[in-house]
Every structure is written in structure tokens, then in C-alpha cells.
């Protein structure tokens, strides 16, 4: 539209006295500005629809069906006649179900307390109380596991634990008589699963705690030192109370991510050794549906496992938004589209 015509349109004769409350923008202009906004959003909306919404819907239908490699193409899984709750009967009837459930709780709880919380906090406190550059150096080292391709990272751990004479730990432990030289992952799989995952997870808490600690006004720390507080007292009475929210955030966020991620476990033990020794919930879902390990992809059954995590995920995510007042970060635009 050229400029004069737009001016003319703007010039439609107005009422001499505008009735109050009357909408003062033209429908055409509003349409145009909306299209503009949706234009900016459309690529994101497309991808989010393809890889979040549709998959969620698919999964929720799949849990009702018995779709697997064997009947793929013949079973009309999208038709309600083929729906049942059979999958859940199968899950709860599975004799390894208690084992997997227990594994999941054990893994999440132990990793969380030992690493995500304790180690992360310890490193954050220590590295902020020593020489700045040294502190930075240690934090960078701790970030390495997160930046390293997981395949390589896990490879390091496997080598660390492998049997004598190759294993690094065995080189030390065999002479001390603590180990007989066998593969240590076979001997203590949980130990390695938890350490390997924990060292990645710890860096998340470490970074957030560090920035929270550095944000504590220096006066606070000084005041407590002047008052004659010991380092431990400073930590207890000054640092911990002022990073209460970051701690809560890290714990909740990481609980969810431990609960649902399985990449490192899959690479390290793949749920073994033996039957379901370190198999966790998320890994079970993946194994059943997408891994050819059992020679049969049981998509329906696998989804039934996964959906429980999806529900936990949505619930947890909406709780964050409430608790951490994310919506307060949202400000109103200060330009009206005409």
C-alpha cells in the first residue's frame, strides 16, 4: 500500500465527539500487527509443535496401544477400538518393576545429596574463598565433564575402572590389596554410575551457587568476620541463608533432570551388569521403545513408561513457574502496535 492511500484511510472522517471507550485503531492495522508478531514466532512455533506437542499427543495415544515392530503397519494404533490399559497392567505386573522403581529412587536421591547439593556447594564455597584465579581455575576443571562429549567422558570412567593391568584404579588398589584386579564397574556399578553422573551434575549447582555467593554483599561477610565468626559460622549464618533460593532451585531442577536423563548410564552400564542392576525408569522406557537390544521395539509399552515421566515433568515445570515466580520476569511491551 502506498503512502498516500494510507493517509487517506487514516483520514476517514471521525466523529466530532468520540464516544468514550471506542476502539481507536482500525481493524486492518490490528490484523497487520498481529501477523507481524506471529511472523516472528512462526519458526519457533513450527519446531515446538513438531517436537513437543505432537510427540506428547502421540505418546499419550501410544500408551493405550500395543504397537511394536512386530505389528507395525498392521495395527491401527490411533483407533480407540485398539486401546486398552494393558500396558500398565504389564508394567505393574513386571517382576522387575519394584527393582527399577527402587533403582530410580536410589540413584536420584544419592546423586542429589552427594554431588548436586553437597559437592556443588562445597566447591562453590571453597572456590570463592581462595585466590580468585585459583578459584576460577578449579571451577573450569569442574566444568570439563559437562563440556566433554559424553562418549569420551564415559570412556574415561570405564578405563578408570577396568581390570588390571589396564585399569587406572586397579593400578593403585591391587598393590594395596583392596581389589583383586577385576573390573570395578562389575564389582560396584552404582558407585561409578553415581560418581560419573554426579560430577557432571555438580557443575550446574556449582555455577549457580558461585554466582549467588558472589552476589552476597561483601559487607555482610566482613561484618561477620569482624564479629569474630569462624569460617564455618560465616558459612552457616551468612552464606547458606542468603542462597536459600538458588539451593532450592538447583535441587528441584536437578531432581527432574536426574529422573529423566539416562544417557550416561546407558553408555556406562546400559542398566547392567546382569539383569536390571542399574536400570532406571527413563532407561527402561528407552530400552523398550527405541533400543534394538531386545530385538523388538515395543513403542506402546515403552511410552507407557515414559508418560509417567512426562507427567512428572509437566507438573514439576509448572511448580517451578509458581515457586520461582518466573512470571514476574515478564514485563509489558512499551510500544503499542497500531
Amino acid at each position: 500500500m502506498n503512502r498516500t492511500s494510507r493517509l487517506e484511510r487514516g483520514g476517514t472522517p471521525p466523529l466530532s465527539h468520540a464516544p468514550s471507550g471506542e476502539e481507536t485503531s482500525s481493524i486492518g492495522a490490528r490484523m497487520r500487527s498481529r501477523l507481524e508478531a506471529y511472523g516472528f514466532l512462526s519458526p519457533a512455533v513450527l519446531l515446538v509443535t513438531l517436537f513437543f506437542f505432537i510427540p506428547v499427543i502421540i505418546i499419550f495415544i501410544l500408551i493405550l496401544s500395543d504397537l511394536k515392530s512386530a505389528n507395525f503397519g498392521t495395527l491401527q494404533w490411533w483407533l480407540p477400538v485398539n486401546w486398552s490399559l494393558e500396558n500398565y497392567a504389564k508394567i505393574f505386573g513386571n517382576k522387575f518393576f519394584p527393582k527399577i522403581l527402587g533403582n530410580t529412587f536410589f540413584y536420584v536421591a544419592v546423586t542429589l545429596t552427594l554431588f548436586i547439593f553437597s559437592s556443588a556447594l562445597l566447591i562453590a564455597v571453597l572456590t570463592t574463598h581462595i585466590n580468585r584465579r585459583a578459584g576460577f581455575f578449579f571451577r573450569v576443571l569442574w566444568l570439563l565433564p559437562r563440556l566433554t562429549p559424553s562418549v569420551i567422558y564415559i570412556m574415561m570412567w570405564q578405563r578408570m575402572a577396568s581390570r588390571a593391568p589396564h585399569g587406572i584404579l586397579n593400578q593403585l588398589l591391587v598393590p594395596l590389596g583392596i581389589s583383586t584386579g577385576g573390573d570395578l564397574i562389575q564389582a560396584a556399578p552404582w558407585l561409578f554410575v553415581i560418581i560419573a553422573n554426579g560430577m557432571i551434575g555438580a557443575s550446574f549447582g556449582m555455577v549457580i551457587f558461585t554466582s549467588a555467593i558472589e552476589a552476597i554483599p561483601k559487607d555482610f561477610m566482613m561484618a561477620s568476620k569482624v564479629d569474630g565468626a569462624s569460617t564455618w559460622q560465616t558459612i552457616r549464618h551468612v552464606i547458606l541463608p542468603s542462597i536459600k533460593w538458588p539451593i532450592l532451585f538447583v535441587i528441584t531442577y536437578q531432581t527432574l533432570s536426574l529422573l529423566t536423563s539416562f544417557e550416561q548410564i546407558m553408555l556406562l552400564t546400559d542398566g547392567g551388569p546382569g539383569l536390571y542392576k542399574t536400570e532406571v525408569w527413563a532407561l527402561t522406557a528407552y530400552h523398550r521403545a527405541l533400543s534394538n537390544y531386545f530385538g523388538n521395539n515395543q513403542w506402546g509399552y515403552g511410552s507407557a513408561w515414559a508418560v509417567i515421566l512426562v507427567i512428572i515433568g509437566v507438573a514439576a515445570a509448572s511448580i517451578y513457574m509458581r515457586v520461582f515466580k518466573f512470571d514476574e520476569l515478564v514485563q509489558e511491551p512499551k510500544i503499542d502496535l497500531l
Binding site: 513438531l50 517436537f51 513437543f52 505432537i54 510427540p55 506428547v56 499427543i57 502421540i58 505418546i59 501410544l62 531442577y253 527432574l256 533432570s257 529422573l259 529423566t260 536423563s261 539416562f262 544417557e263 527413563a282 522406557a285 528407552y286 521403545a289 527405541l290 513403542w299 515403552g302 511410552s303 515414559a306 515421566l309 512426562v310 515433568g313 509437566v314 514439576a316 515445570a317 517451578y320 513457574m321
Partner: peptide
């Protein structure tokens, strides 16, 4: 905040 890995099965079909 959503754990996207839980959707892999659905994405497979997409």
C-alpha cells in the same frame, strides 16, 4: 524446565 528426552518415542514417529 521440561525434560525433552522423555519425548523421544513420540519424536520417532514424527
Amino acid at each position: 524446565a521440561f525434560p525433552s528426552v522423555t519425548l523421544l518415542i513420540g519424536i520417532y514417529f514424527v
